[in-house]
Nucleic acid binder design. Structure first.
Lengths: 230, 230
DNA sequence: AAGTGGTCTAGACCACCCT
DNA sequence: GGGTGGTCTAGACCACTTT
């Protein structure tokens, strides 16, 4: 545990007991209190500012933010997302195969056409009810013997534990669509119901394209909350 | 112009000429080159890392990112959003009235029930084609004589110019829905088509709730692109 | 062992806001 | 003028990776 992380967590706890627009102690005071340099205090404050918990005004002070900002839309797995919503995530594996990449998938994953990819279909449940149907495409070269693994849990956790691959960035496209009968049946809603369609391309910390997935979320059960700033 | 901003812009220009995964000079070299301290170099690098242009590996070096990341989803007005997509924005004002706030609107705007609000309905066009139908609720107290203004242009620009109010933060909820006949007709699509429903609460830099709006976007023409990071 | 980025220090001056 | 956060310095040691 580094000092600035320690200071940050102490401050986070203190902020939780304060009111919006309350004034925090001066940076020089905090440095004295925690027996660290002012730069270290500033490192901790900067991190809290980026989280939206506090804001600072030059020549004035540092304050608790007006509203508690929900974390917005970070890069989270379905598993993490559901846990954050206090729902119990589960997964039903529907299909898991290896096949040559169709042209459009190869292009998205930046592979040569026909290179082998894994294709997975999974139904994601929350507290036992269908929430989302997803199709995933993964380069086989990055995940040897993937199909021998347990695929009805968090894939991101499997990637990290088994393949030392962390999805660091994701490019997402969000839109709406009408559900085909098959997908509607899986999700337990009438055909042609509206759903959220999320296409995601996951990239690891070395810049390799790790996954391409499309998820269909039940619109009656799911939405994105995000807070954006100027 | 501060030093770290100068260093950052110089580096940004240099990065533009480099290939993904190219190695940047060591921090200590950069400090020497620019005749600044290593901390200042690190401040510039940190900013570029947050923009996704570079990444660093401890004990190894700092590298150009594999992909140029689009800026994701900021707080933009419809007008700005369309211009960014190279589409010409336009607006057709459908309704503009003043009325007592219904209970749910009052609650969302944190007003007393029955306090007066403006209610606007507008059809937003891109290159002349319907893109989005929006309903807006605004506290009258913040925008005296709003209905006398020109309401078929960017409201955010009007707020800034006429009322010195800048929407600094917005809480958004994004989901999908089926269009009612009236809304489908306005947007020029069949009834019950899928659409994106975006609810937005805008907050100014003093923490006042400035607007509550619901927008229905044609799903065939519109989606959100966003890049998220761990 | 050598070299990298990550953390931390103690001190200084600047830009801005208040009284 | 006095106090705040913002910037910057020169130097040190640590954690990690590669040789």
């Amino acid at each position: 545990m580094t000092k600035h992380l320690y200071v940050r967590e102490q401050l986070r706890a203190q902020i939780a007991t304060m009111q919006p627009n309350d004034l925090l102690p001066k940076e020089r005071e905090l440095a004295e209190t925690f027996q660290v340099s002012r730069n270290t205090v500033r490192q901790a404050l900067q991190s809290l500012i980026e989280d939206g918990l506090i804001y600072s005004v030059r020549g004035h002070g540092t304050f608790v933010s007006d509203r508690r900002i929900s974390k917005g839309l970070g890069l989270t797995s379905f598993t993490e997302d559901m846990r954050a919503r206090n729902l119990e995530p589960a997964t039903r594996l529907i299909t898991a195969t290896q096949r040559p990449a169709p042209d459009d998938i190869a292009r998205t994953l930046e592979l040569q056409p026909g290179e082998p990819v894994y294709y997975l279909e999974r139904l994601r449940l929350a507290d036992g009810f269908p929430m989302c149907f997803e199709r995933l495409h993964l380069p086989t070269s990055l995940f040897p013997k993937l199909l021998d693994q347990k695929l009805d849990a968090s894939l991101y956790e499997l990637f990290a534990a088994r393949y030392r691959t962390v999805v660091a960035t994701a490019e997402q496209h969000i839109t709406a669509t009408e559900l085909q009968k098959r997908h509607a049946d899986l999700l337990g809603v009438p055909a042609k119901s509206a759903a959220m369609l999320v296409s995601r391309r996951g990239i690891d910390n070395r810049g390799r394209i790790v996954e391409y997935g499309q998820s269909l979320y039940r619109a009656d059960r799911y939405g994105f909350d995000l807070t954006v700033r100027r």
